[in-house]
């Protein structure tokens, strides 16, 4: 019950925050934290079954471009445009799923990178549709129907909802039948099949949730930054590596890991980019790389697991003491 109260207090605090403090840079930072919480949770869903995707930008970009193109060329409001965007994303996910879900480990990761790369190059070359490398700009016509606003505050609430929603979805998924099955598949796919789990269908469900949330984020984020271009939309650093980094640091395969990871890494990333990045181009990412190596070597479970084991469940063998003969004492 204590946890519930804590969460409610947190929620209340978050809801009223912009009223008290609305400096644009601060709001931007918090919005980015919310964005990455949602994105990392989405990525985490697939990571639950052991598939590390470094190509999630594909889903981001597909949805983002669909909604942006519909908005700019046909004047369709993103609120409606997000449906075709999601459809396109799901088609992309299905294209990825059928051949590639049977791959494991690094091969899946490579294939996911290849997938995002193909889409990026196609976006660059298909000038008629995407204006190539120049990218598209969302016209600035403030109002709820266009999802563009003069202040950051509406975006704050939109991304807050997306972040909270994705944490909720992952939480429900984790404790559901599907969640247990995904973890089983991650551990031993054959044994899972022998127990009656349709591993293909289960992984497909995970993929669709993961791609769907990512796509949704693509639509909204594009409206937030007003523009889209291939280099950025399908960029692996921002939308593939970053959530992976957040996820690992927070703790892979847990519900709150992505939250903690994003809360820690996003401000750090911003700091690194503005100070170190200004000092020397590439220095911030260099540090990122070192951090990633360091975390894997020192704390492969991320931060959440050690913390969690201090609280509850995963304590080493609460089994009653056994005597020599294996009988319970």
């Amino acid at each position: 019950m204590k946890q519930r109260h804590l969460l409610m207090a947190l929620a209340a605090g978050l809801l009223v925050l912009p009223i008290f403090y609305s400096a644009p840079y601060f709001l931007h930072l918090v919005i980015m934290i919310f964005f990455y919480i949602a994105l990392t949770e989405a990525w985490n869903i697939l990571a639950l079954c052991g598939k590390v995707s470094l190509g999630h930008a594909a889903f981001f970009g597909l949805a983002a471009y669909t909604s942006a193109i519909l908005c700019i060329k046909k004047g369709v409001t993103p609120w409606i445009g997000l449906f075709p965007a999601l459809l396109v994303t799901f088609i992309g996910a299905a294209a990825l799923a059928i051949p590639l879900l049977r791959l494991r480990g690094p091969m899946f990761t490579l294939a996911s990178i290849a997938f995002a790369e193909v889409l990026r190059r196609v976006a660059m070359v298909w000038r008629d549709l995407t204006a190539g490398a120049e990218g598209l700009t969302i016209p600035f016509v403030p109002g709820w129907q266009n999802l563009t606003f003069t202040t950051k505050i509406p975006y704050y609430y939109i991304f807050l909802i997306l972040a909270a929603g994705s944490v909720y979805i992952v939480h429900r998924l984790y404790y559901s039948a599907t969640g247990h099955h995904l973890r089983a598949i991650a551990s031993d796919e054959e044994a899972a099949q022998a127990l009656g789990i349709n591993t293909q269908k289960t992984q497909l469900i995970a993929l669709f949730w993961s791609a769907g949330i990512t796509g949704l984020l693509g639509v909204f984020y594009t409206q937030y930054v007003y523009m889209i271009e291939p280099e950025w939309a399908f960029s692996s650093a921002l939308f593939c590596l970053q959530p992976a980094l957040n996820g690992i640091i927070g703790g892979l395969g847990t519900v709150w890991g992505p939250v903690i990871g994003s809360v820690l890494m996003t401000p750090l990333g911003e700091y690194l980019r503005s100070y170190l990045g200004a000092l020397q181009q590439g220095l911030n990412f260099f540090v990122y790389g070192l951090v990633l190596i360091g975390v894997v070597m020192v704390l492969p479970g991320g931060i959440v697991s050690p913390l969690l084991s201090l609280f509850k469940r995963w304590t080493p063998s609460k089994a009653p003491a056994l005597d020599q003969g294996g009988k319970v004492r």
Binding site: V52, A244, I248, G282, L283, F286, Y288, G289, L292, V296
Partner: peptide, 17 residues
């Protein structure tokens, strides 16, 4: 996977620097 990806990021950006 992650450790070699970390290496990749570090080296690529070292070159950039």
């Amino acid at each position: 996977i992650f450790v070699t990806v970390g290496l990749f990021i570090a080296l690529q950006n070292l070159a950039l620097m």
